[in-house]
Design a protein around this nucleic acid. Sequence first.
DNA 1: TTTAAATTGTTATAATATAACACCATGTAA
DNA 2: TTACATGGTGTTATATTATAACAATTTAAA
Lengths: 130, 130
Amino acid sequence: MHKEHTLTKNQQIIFDLIDKSPEPMKAYAILFSVQKKGIKAPLQVYRALDKLVEIGKIHKIESRNAFIACHNSSCQVSKATAFSICEICEKITEISSASLSKYLANFKDKDGMKYSKYNLEFFGLCKKCR
Amino acid sequence: MHKEHTLTKNQQIIFDLIDKSPEPMKAYAILFSVQKKGIKAPLQVYRALDKLVEIGKIHKIESRNAFIACHNSSCQVSKATAFSICEICEKITEISSASLSKYLANFKDKDGMKYSKYNLEFFGLCKKCR
DNA sequence: TTTAAATTGTTATAATATAACACCATGTAA
DNA sequence: TTACATGGTGTTATATTATAACAATTTAAA
C-alpha cells in the first residue's frame, strides 16, 4: 500500500483533477484547468506533480509528457510502472500484471545488476482502433 | 538486420556524432556540435533525429530526452528497446538480453492484446556508483 | 515553542520541440 | 523528355515543456 500522505491544497486540487480525467493530462492542460482555483504558475503545477509522482499517487508517461493517476494498489507501484499506449487514439492504460512485474522486478542484466525501478511503455493499437 | 538506408548528409553528420559519443546526446547539444558543419537550426537536427529513430539507427531515451546510437544487431531492435540508467552518474546502456526481449515481445495483457513495440527503462545504481 | 523542513507565490528564463513555407534533389512513369 | 510524386533542406517564427532564484508562509517534529 501507499504510505499515507496528507496532500496539501495544491497537491489535492491537482490530484483530483488527474484522478477524474479519463485520460492522462499534460502539465499545461492541468495549469489551465486549475487557474480558477488560484494556481497560476507552471511551477506550482510542476511542484505538485513532482510530489505526487514521488509518493506514487500519479505516474508520468515519459513518451507523452503526461500524467495519469495510479489505479494500482500494489505496493511497488511507484517504482515499477507499465503502460499500454494506443498509437492511434492515444488511449493509455496502466498494466497490472503480476507475472510481468515479478519478471521485471527480478530481472538482472549481464553483470548481474538488479534495478530498483523501471518504466515500461508498450505501443500498439487498442481494440477500437484495430 | 536493419534495412539499409543511405543516410543523407545531415543524417550522416548527426548519426556520426551520436555514434561517437560515449553518452547519449541531447538535441541542442547536437545542434551546438554540428553548427560548424552548417546545421544551424533545431529543425534540421530534429528532422534527422526523427528519421534516424524511425530506421532504428538511434534510440531516444524518453526519460532523459536524449539520443543514443543502437549497438544491437537484432532485427527487432527499433521496436523493442531496453536501457539501464544510473540515477547518480547518468550512465546509460542499452540492454540486450534475449530472454528479456523474448518475454516482452510475447507479453499479452489481460485482454490478450499483444503489442508491436515497447520501450523499457530500468533505473538503479551502476557498479561505480554503488 | 522554537526550529528545521516543506510548501507556497512570484517573476523570469531555460530547454525541448513543432508549424509553416519556399525551394531543391531524385526516382519513376507517361 | 517531361511531369510529378516523394522526401530532404533551409529558414523564421513560435509553441510546449520545465526549471532557477528568491522571499514569505505553513507544517511538523524535537
